[in-house]
Computed example of a mutant assay.
Amino acid sequence: MSKQLRIINAEQVFDEEINTLKRVKTSLSQNDAFNNVEDAIRGCKGKVILCGMGKSGHIGRKISATFASLGIPSFFLHPGEAMHGDLGMVDAKDVLILISHSGESTEVVSILPSIKVIGAKTIALTGNEKSTLARECDVTFILDVPHEACALDLAPTSSTTATLVLGDALAVVASEERGFTKSDFGLRHPAGTLGKKVLTRVKHLMAKGKNIPFVFEGCSITEAIMEMSKKGLGVVAIVDEDKILKGLLTDGDLRRAIEKKIDLYNGIIDEVMTVNPKSITSDLLAVDALSRLKENHLNNYPVVDGKKRLVGMLTWQMIIREGITL
């Protein structure tokens, strides 16, 4: 096969599957099937369970993962394992989405009688409106897939793609109707970038306790410089005896002091510190703190409580190291 012929054949696969998706998309508005399925999912008080055999099973796993990712409790039930005890995971409050293009997959059809006894609602996603699955399920969506993209018109290709996209559509619409938010998404993806953005707060990242660089007002500039060098954050907070924040000394303040020829060896910190510096609280989201740092052209923030007492120190490097960006 020539390289050009390979490309032509590959493009035909794309065209066939795209045409199938357009066909199924058009069918959404031609009857109430999609809305009926969504109504069943919306009314579910338990879990949305996906079930399928072979390639349909792989698609079912992905659809289930999408539902769970978007805040709708879901898992995949292997039909073979279901017949050997896993039906114990199914409850009357659940909704089962059964996938079979032929609608006659033995393993899938075989669990229907037990599901009916349990009382769970059943949804069929199939390409055969006359099939056992279509007849026996409470709700049915027929995927009109006249041809597979496979050259032999045998391997599940167009049908699995259409089912996958339909599953995504069902999950996304159901999630929107339930009012699922970015914060909800982040809560379910704590290891991901978005999860960190909506969950990580200043208190999770800031230097605290013995790691906070601070000195008391009235101390010498050299003492403050030594504290800054020891803690390695390029900043030191100045507090009173009650640890109320009074000022801040940064590398920039020291450079400006040198330019003004201030005696760094004999002067006191009050002469060179930034008075009443900007500060943040520990409950602020780290991404919001990063935004403020950027907006105010700062490298760090002292962290204070409600009485302006120093409780931590945050630098932009701490936030970036956590993988949080704007």
Rank of each mutant, 00 (worst) to 15 (best):
288 D>W: 00
255 R>Q: 12
82 A>H: 00
273 M>F: 07
249 L>Y: 07
209 G>V: 08
18 I>F: 12
221 I>E: 03
278 K>G: 06
14 F>W: 09
220 S>I: 02
22 K>C: 07
70 L>H: 03
167 G>V: 15
105 S>D: 13
238 I>Q: 09
244 I>Q: 15
321 R>E: 14
263 D>V: 08
242 D>P: 02
147 H>Q: 12
5 L>F: 01
152 L>H: 07
73 P>I: 12
245 L>T: 12
80 G>D: 07
268 I>M: 10
188 R>M: 14
120 A>F: 09
169 A>M: 13
231 K>N: 10
220 S>F: 01
72 I>R: 04
322 E>H: 02
268 I>P: 00
174 A>H: 06
312 G>T: 11
85 G>Y: 04
78 H>A: 08
260 K>M: 14
306 G>R: 08
255 R>P: 07
172 V>F: 05
233 L>V: 07
247 G>M: 04
93 K>P: 02
138 D>G: 10
48 V>M: 05
208 K>G: 04
56 S>Y: 14
68 A>G: 01
123 I>Q: 11
148 E>P: 06
158 S>P: 03
148 E>W: 05
42 R>G: 03
322 E>P: 00
154 L>R: 08
253 D>F: 03
181 T>K: 14
5 L>W: 05
188 R>S: 09
196 K>A: 08
326 L>Y: 01
275 V>S: 12
323 G>C: 09
179 G>Q: 09
300 N>G: 10
275 V>P: 01
181 T>Q: 10
19 N>A: 11
67 F>V: 02
106 T>P: 01
266 N>A: 09
176 E>P: 00
195 G>V: 14
270 D>Y: 01
136 E>P: 00
43 G>N: 14
249 L>C: 11
82 A>M: 06
135 R>G: 01
34 F>V: 11
139 V>G: 02
218 G>T: 04
160 T>V: 06
250 T>H: 10
29 S>E: 14
268 I>S: 15
101 H>T: 11
247 G>I: 05
97 I>R: 08
313 M>Q: 05
32 D>V: 04
164 L>T: 07
183 S>A: 12
45 K>A: 10
142 I>C: 01
115 I>E: 02
